[in-house]
Design a protein around this nucleic acid. Structure first.
Length: 765
RNA sequence: GGGGGUGUGGCGGAAUUGGUAGACGCGCUAGACUCAAAAUCUGGUUGGAAACAGUGUGGGUUCGAUUCCCACCGCCCCUACCA
């Protein structure tokens, strides 16, 4: 007799949930809402990885518990489907990106559905669909109208392999995060969003949200706010050199100035003319600017050359000091030049030693005097968001350039601006987008004056669509606006947001910026999109190494579902270890979880319709307390063990009371929803367990069987005694003293007795 | 260099306003069922015969320390010349 035919059970209930459309919430002002969200995946060709379900399951558990507690729960899912891998795939195979995307989404969706997540599938969003990116484009236009999007010629990081410009946030130690090639600098005309002007507000907003502390810290560090002063040093050849310093109090110790090589080129031209050693300067500068940042920072000994003949004057004490150029000074930060205080700044000190510059001790200014130096100034590491990508598979930027009117946004009626059909997705060596080849698309009319004009051919970065998807879920089928005010007012902010750590300084920061901008424009009610942010740890292969195709150690969720069932995979991924820690997969351990579910199914055949015993009620109360608390605390691994403890206890009897088992099934249901539905039905319930009320317990039940005290003598455990729940302290102490195994250790007079209610009696001698 | 985290049986891991160290599970082991095996069930499982010892190491505070304090060692992650 099969008591746990998980295949049949899981198919049956997945069909039931879908047919009844159980998890598609409607606005219902009589109920409190709860909005749970997992980052939507990029639908790669590889399909779902076992890492994906970890977050989905965790939030599914939270969502299911909240539903049972009476909340109106929105737990949606979709696909972030624009991006480079699909385009690379198209180049390699000739399969069109939208076709590949559709196939991949179908695969992902089938896999997700096979795991029984209570997603509101009716609200699915796909960022590469014109119905969706119509509104991404619309929002971009609003940002442009707010003055937050601008086009300028600037230096961008350029990946020579991907042939694409990339943002600072997409760099990994100076390399392209996608292909690991060293990036170069290239001058291009690109769109940027004024994210830097939101720096302070992005920091301030963190005080109003519940993110993990390290997430807040990473964002704050990334924004890199530093307060200081800008000081002007007059130059002997006229003009002056402006520098930023966080330590104006050290100005008396300035021994020399350093200008970044790029800044030298900008100030003195490609020939670096006008110095006594112009050839040397020119050679150094031109060699330096082609070196990557990685190369520069790996140089052990600092290098540089003097700008001979150029002298700067310290405005504080009138001292004349030499000026150098050196590549340890960064172009992109501050003014691209520094005042060097070798006595106090380690890097300046290293450079001074390398150059043989002598220096003495620095006299610090008083805080008051320091305030008088230069002009107060705040600098940020975070730059504006470079928003142009020279690729095909992204949202077209809905802008037109007219020689008369400049950059003009498309009128709303022309949205979505659909991606034109192209046959060749190959990037171009000159750095322009494949769209630039589509002449009849590029050439258009100016929306303002009707004259000849050209479309923008760059597309948006893959982070664009995910900036606002949480809003679209609230009202996914609205074709008049991106979401109605009513829907946004009701669903408000995301209450619980789960995602990967790698998005902390990208997606999470971008989405926060975007929301603030939209809120400023009056388009949305809240400026912080996510109230609480959590991260799940990675799932590694057996042995703790990364799963990879080349190592042939990838666990495919499909195989696990086929062999052990979705409920087993779900419960195992929760039981595998602390939610926020990286954990190694172990199929052997997973089988233990499978056994647990099997035993739960088997116990359903020993259910008797009788009153619950005191012991049963006690076990159930403990389980209800622990499971509830641990779900709320995101301690899913110990929540599962609480369920196991309860099951172990119930199995000891010949039978289990029906009411107790029913409550146990409720506690199990967020974790193993298919099995729970099946058992719930076997118990005679006609309605889904998904909306049954959560288990309430009576705290008195927990200790109804009595309390066990540990008795210690001098802090060492000597015995344990079981007493009635209402016994008073003096009586417990008396019982403890007379216990034989305790009494023999009381070899000298008792000094005092420490009594911890419900736990310990410690006799100090 | 800076920042964060972490160290507990054979393994994954429990236990923090200081209060039974090793929950729960895996593995192992003995037994039941079986011709046999798998599956399942029952018992055992930190070391030690025991007294005791035991949470990376060494100190400290305390009736009592995995938990708090000091110093040190190891591992992991993030970040990286930001003036």
């Amino acid at each position: 007799m099969t008591t746990y035919d998980f295949n049949a059970i899981e198919k049956k209930w997945q069909k039931y949930w879908e047919e009844k459309s159980l998890f598609n919430p409607k606005i219902d002002k009589s109920k409190k809402k709860f909005y749970a969200l997992c980052e939507f995946p990029y639908p790669s060709g590889a399909g779902l990885h076992v890492g994906h379900p970890r977050g989905y399951t965790a939030l599914d558990i939270v969502a299911r518990r909240k539903r049972m507690q009476g909340f109106n729960v929105l737990y949606p899912m979709g696909f972030d489907s624009f991006g480079l891998p699909t385009e690379h795939y198209a180049i390699k195979t000739g399969i069109r990106p939208e076709v590949a995307t559709e196939q991949n989404i179908a695969t992902f969706k089938a896999q997700m559905k096979s795991l029984g997540f209570s997603f509101a599938w009716e609200r699915e969003v796909i960022t590469s669909s014109p119905e969706y990116y119509r509104w991404t484009q619309w929002q971009f236009i609003q940002l442009f109208k707010l003055g937050l999007a601008y086009k300028e010629t600037t230096e961008v990081w350029w990946c020579p392999k991907c042939k694409i410009g990339i943002a600072n946030e997409e760099l990994e130690a100076g390399r392209c995060e996608r292909c690991d090639a060293e990036v170069e600098k290239k001058t291009r005309e690109i769109w940027s969003l004024k994210m830097q002007s939101y720096s302070d507000r992005l920091i301030e907003g963190l005080s109003r949200v519940d993110f993990l502390e390290n997430i807040k810290k990473m964002q704050i560090d990334w924004i890199g706010r530093s307060e200081g002063a800008e000081v002007e040093f007059p130059l002997s050849k006229g003009g002056s050199l402006r520098v930023f310093t966080t330590r104006p109090d050290t100005i008396a110790g300035v021994e020399f100035m350093v200008i970044s090589p790029e800044e030298v080129l900008e100030r003195f031209g490609p020939l670096c003319g006008g110095f006594d050693n112009s050839d040397e300067v020119c050679g150094y500068v031109n060699a330096a600017v082609v070196r990557t940042d990685v190369e520069r920072s790996q140089t052990k000994v600092k290098t540089g050359v003097p700008l001979a003949g150029l002298v700067a004057t310290n405005p504080y004490n009138g001292r004349e000091i030499p000026v150098y150029t050196a590549d340890y000074v960064l172009y992109g930060y501050g003014t691209g030049a520094i005042m060097a205080v070798p006595d106090l700044d380690e890097r300046d000190g290293e450079f001074a030693n390398a150059m043989g510059i002598k220096f003495g001790e620095t006299k610090l200014l008083s805080p008051d005097d320091a305030l008088k130096v230069g002009e107060r100034k705040v600098n940020y590491k975070m730059q504006d968001w470079q928003f142009s990508r020279q690729r095909y598979w992204g949202e077209p930027i809905p802008m037109v350039h007219c020689s008369m009117c400049g950059w003009v946004p498309l009128p709303e009626s022309e949205l979505p601006l659909k991606l034109p059909h192209v046959d060749n997705y190959l990037p171009t060596d000159d750095g322009s987008s494949p769209l630039a080849r589509v002449a009849d698309w590029v050439n258009t009319k100016c929306p303002t004056c009707g004259g000849a004009a050209k479309r923008e051919t760059d597309t948006m970065p893959m982070w664009a669509g995910s900036c606002w998807y949480y809003l679209r879920y609230m009202d996914a089928h609205n074709d008049r606006e991106f979401a109605s005010r009513e829907a946004m007012d009701y669903w408000g902010q995301v209450d619980l947001y789960n995602g990967g750590q790698e998005h902390t300084t990208r997606h999470l920061l971008y989405a926060r910026f975007w929301s603030k901008a939209l809120c400023d424009g009056g388009f949305i009610p809240n400026d912080e999109p996510f109230m609480r942010r959590i991260m799940h740890g990675m799932i590694l292969a057996e042995g703790g190494v990364k799963m990879s195709k080349s190592k042939n150690n990838v666990i495919n969720p499909n195989d696990i579902v086929a062999e052990y069932g979705a409920d087993t995979l779900r419960v195992y991924e929760m039981f595998i270890g602390p939610y926020d820690q990286a954990v190694a997969w172990s199929t052997e351990s997973m089988i233990g979880v499978h056994r647990f579910l099997k035993r739960a199914a088997a116990l359903s055949e020993r259910v008797e319709d009788r009153a619950a015993t005191v012991a049963e009620r006690s076990v159930l109360a403990v389980a209800a307390r622990d499971v509830s608390e641990r779900i709320d605390a995101l301690k899913f691994n110990t929540a599962v063990s609480a369920l196991m403890i309860a099951l172990n206890a119930f199995e000891e009897g010949d039978s289990v009371a029906k009411s107790v088992f029913a409550d146990f099934v409720k506690l199990l249901s967020p974790f193993a929803p298919h099995l729970a539905e099946e058992l719930w039905e076997r118990l005679g319930n006609a309605e889904s367990i998904a909306f049954a009320s959560w288990v309430e317990f009576d705290a008195a039940d927990i200790s109804a069987e009595g309390i066990v005290y540990v008795v210690q003598v001098g802090g060492k455990r000597r015995a344990e005694i079981s007493v009635g729940a209402d016994m008073d302290q003096a009586e417990v102490e008396r019982l403890a003293m007379v216990e034989e195994s305790v009494a023999k250790f009381i070899t000298s007079p008792v000094k005092k007795v420490i009594f911890v209610p419900g736990k310990i009696v410690n006799i100090v001698i």
